[in-house]
Amino acid sequence: MDKVGRIVEFVLELDRLKAVTRKVRPLGQERYENSAEHSWHLAMLALSMAPYAPPGTDMDRVIHMLLVHDIGEIDTGDTLFFVEAGRVERKAAEEQAASRILSLLPDGQGAPLLDLWREFEAGESREARFAQAMDRAAPVLLNLANDGQSWRENGVRHEQVAGRVGPPVAAGCPALWDHIAGRLDAARDAGWYGMG
């Protein structure tokens, strides 16, 4: 297969991400969002929040991370963020899947993208922390706009959201966490969390 054909094969493989269903519904929809539209939504959130990124943040790098961070879900599917059991095994399987998918690209084009995937997962660089903040915040923003739809359906408690989402969002984009934090308490008062 020629190089252009390999790129086309890669892009068609990525199309399968549209079939990976998540647990949150898009605003005004009865269906659940898929991982491809989630990745696009995060990229747009990051671009919009760029003025609140830490000084010196390379936004191109952030966008690239957000576009590749969930491609492993083509093979593994999506798991609710709050599920603790099997997390290490899921991440290993997702890395193997990301490696498989990115290796479809010719001439080693996938290697730097896999490095970005790993950087995102490690969460140690300024860009990875900002990207992770976007990834953790977006479902929360949808839940706040959807009266806690996914939290109620999946038994997610206030403490889980504040405890697991708060630290990475506050570390990567403090202004966004400031916006969200008080709303989580109001959502609790409104009964928008599950009984998990």
Rank of each mutant, 00 (worst) to 15 (best):
residue 114 L to E: 09
residue 134 M to T: 04
residue 168 P to R: 02
residue 167 P to V: 06
residue 35 S to R: 11
residue 146 N to V: 02
residue 162 A to V: 15
residue 182 G to I: 05
residue 22 R to V: 11
residue 13 E to S: 13
residue 194 G to F: 02
residue 151 W to D: 03
residue 110 G to W: 00
residue 58 D to V: 09
residue 125 S to T: 15
residue 146 N to C: 06
residue 61 R to A: 11
residue 165 V to D: 09
residue 62 V to C: 11
residue 149 Q to L: 11
residue 91 K to V: 10
residue 22 R to D: 07
residue 148 G to N: 09
residue 63 I to V: 14
residue 114 L to G: 05
residue 67 L to V: 13
residue 115 D to P: 07
residue 148 G to F: 05
residue 177 W to E: 11
residue 56 G to C: 10
residue 125 S to G: 13
residue 75 D to Q: 07
residue 176 L to M: 12
residue 148 G to Q: 01
residue 12 L to K: 15
residue 24 V to K: 02
residue 74 I to D: 03
residue 160 Q to I: 06
residue 137 A to V: 12
residue 90 R to V: 00
residue 184 L to T: 04
residue 104 L to M: 14
residue 47 L to C: 13
residue 83 V to Y: 11
residue 47 L to H: 10
residue 52 Y to D: 13
residue 93 A to F: 01
residue 26 P to R: 07
residue 190 A to E: 12
residue 113 L to Q: 09
residue 180 I to N: 07
residue 86 G to K: 03
residue 119 E to V: 07
residue 148 G to S: 01
residue 141 L to A: 10
residue 75 D to I: 01
residue 190 A to M: 09
residue 16 R to C: 05
residue 43 A to E: 15
residue 42 L to W: 04
residue 11 V to L: 11
residue 188 R to P: 00
residue 100 R to E: 00
residue 59 M to H: 07
residue 99 S to Q: 15
residue 56 G to E: 06
residue 64 H to S: 15
residue 71 I to N: 05
residue 80 L to K: 08
residue 39 S to F: 05
residue 3 K to T: 13
residue 77 G to Y: 04
residue 121 E to F: 09
residue 145 A to L: 13
residue 193 Y to A: 05
residue 85 A to Y: 05
residue 38 H to G: 06
residue 154 N to V: 04
residue 155 G to Q: 01
residue 142 L to S: 11
residue 29 Q to W: 14
residue 141 L to E: 10
residue 132 Q to P: 07
residue 155 G to A: 06
residue 72 G to A: 05
residue 141 L to T: 09
residue 139 P to M: 00
residue 158 H to S: 04
residue 4 V to I: 13
residue 105 L to H: 03
residue 139 P to I: 03
residue 144 L to R: 05
residue 43 A to W: 14
residue 113 L to M: 10
residue 56 G to T: 12
residue 94 E to I: 00
residue 98 A to S: 06
residue 89 E to V: 02
residue 64 H to P: 11
residue 138 A to V: 14
residue 193 Y to M: 08
residue 149 Q to P: 11
residue 37 E to D: 10
residue 68 V to Q: 03
residue 69 H to V: 01
residue 121 E to G: 12
residue 58 D to I: 04
residue 5 G to T: 10
residue 50 A to D: 01
residue 195 M to P: 13
residue 158 H to N: 04
residue 115 D to Q: 12
residue 63 I to E: 03
residue 28 G to E: 05
residue 165 V to G: 03
residue 7 I to N: 08
residue 161 V to K: 05
residue 146 N to D: 08
residue 163 G to C: 04
residue 152 R to A: 14
residue 129 R to L: 12
residue 176 L to P: 04
residue 104 L to I: 14
residue 116 L to G: 01
residue 131 A to Y: 06
